[in-house]
Nucleic acid binder design. Structure first.
Lengths: 233, 233
DNA sequence: CGGCGCACTCGACAGGGTGTTGACAACGCC
DNA sequence: GGCGTTGTCAACACCCTGTCGAGTGCGCCG
């Protein structure tokens, strides 16, 4: 189904730590659920998501995370290789949820093209909104962490691919004009969503009011996909 | 003229250090051009831009900057309050150049709407391309430096304003439909440009090939601005 | 049942980065 | 020829990261 190639945390309750781009040498030993181990891991994750509500990742020290989870700093390193690895796990979960939301939204949407485009965009928006702290932190960490950057790139690639297919389907049935390559359009539109949602949730300056951001995005998508792109002289 | 409210380094040759959002307590004393002082400052700036070609800002230490400029670390702090302040100055210059480019491009463009939109977008692209290292570093530093974030927000606000005015002019003459508020469209389109150009120059994953990125952006702008946004059922 | 080993924990360290302090040198100028 | 301003740096205090090695308690196998 939808998730193209993003690593997935196996979806049973206990969030068994997934492979991920491999948190480097100081990996885990996790296998015998001695109980307390997984609890600690969850405590670290929860602390991280909580602290991210109010501070950026670079303002959070490993010690903060450790203290929040009731352990010492060295013990933190038993569970995660770095605070970026924690964020990566959080991001991975969010992506998982986003894909679930997306599939559900598309399944529930009526067949008209406009409604389907809107449903997909709204799903993207909702996933972002539900974990905005994680999403914003991940965006910030993309600059410094190759793992975060790669994971996000894979996620975007999946969405771009789906978008490209959908545009091509519309073109095939003659509903949309064949202007710029569908993939290029898909790339620009998906990055636009990411960036605009980011600014909106971050409360940065030129932002679209939160209540209308989906409208603005949908309008732009529809215009770009269905217009002949020839402005009147 | 064009530059809306971005702080401007007074444009004579010697780049007299502009106010900027004030690099905090350890400010300058700069006023008597004792020669060697400004030279050092320029050396730091040059070193920074050079090092940014190959490494991200967080991989560059103040010591690297100081050594590159032939001074010691404490002396660096005589000139700039932090490495972020250096980046801020570099960014300020780039913005200055971008605005010059933009005005020139619009002045030289033919009167047809399509050509004018393309000229403005291409100017944005060229400014970015000319100092991509600075632009990419600034994007990364937005997460950690409020000054960088604010400067960039002001710059975007200026462009958004110009775009909004242009869209409204088109609507006023009946050339473009009155769908979503012009400003919302302007915001989404400008952030789209920023993000897509970023991915392209950074060589990140789902990117439009550099040669066609301006085409893709222009197509999206024209579609979004001139289309009625009503896809065929 | 007693000892082996694994899962887990942390005190203490090494190393690297930042920003500041205070002493000091050179220069122009009054 | 003394004085402020500009510029310079060694040394310091501090914070943060990641690692090492010495434990501790528990299950399990012999």
């Amino acid at each position: 189904m939808s998730a193209p190639s993003a690593p997935s945390a196996s979806s049973d309750g206990t969030t068994e730590s997934a492979p991920l781009p491999s948190p480097s040498p100081p990996a885990r030993g996790r296998r015998a659920p001695r109980v307390s181990g997984d609890e600690r891991e969850r405590a670290i994750l929860a602390t991280a998501e909580e602290l991210l509500q109010t501070r950026a990742l670079h303002e959070i020290s490993v010690d903060d995370l450790a203290k929040g989870a009731g352990i010492s700093r060295p013990t933190f390193y038993f569970y995660f290789g770095s605070k970026e690895a924690v964020l990566l796990t959080l991001l991975d979960r969010m992506v998982e949820e986003a894909n679930v939301l997306r599939v559900a939204a598309l399944a529930a949407a009526p067949p008209e093209p406009a409604a389907r485009w809107r449903a997909a965009i709204a799903a993207f928006h909702d996933a972002f909104a539900a974990h905005r702290a994680v999403a914003l932190a991940a965006a910030g960490a993309r600059a410094s962490s190759p793992d975060v950057r790669d994971l996000w790139a894979r996620v975007m690639e999946g969405w771009v691919q789906e978008t490209t297919d959908a545009i091509e389907a519309e073109r095939a049935r003659g509903a949309a004009p064949d202007t710029v390559p569908a993939r290029h359009l898909a790339v620009t539109l998906n990055w636009m969503n990411e960036r605009v949602l980011h600014t909106t949730f971050a409360g940065e300056s030129p932002a679209v009011p939160a209540a209308q951001v989906v409208d603005a995005l949908v309008a732009t998508w529809l215009g770009a996909i269905y217009a002949g792109a020839v402005p009147p002289a």
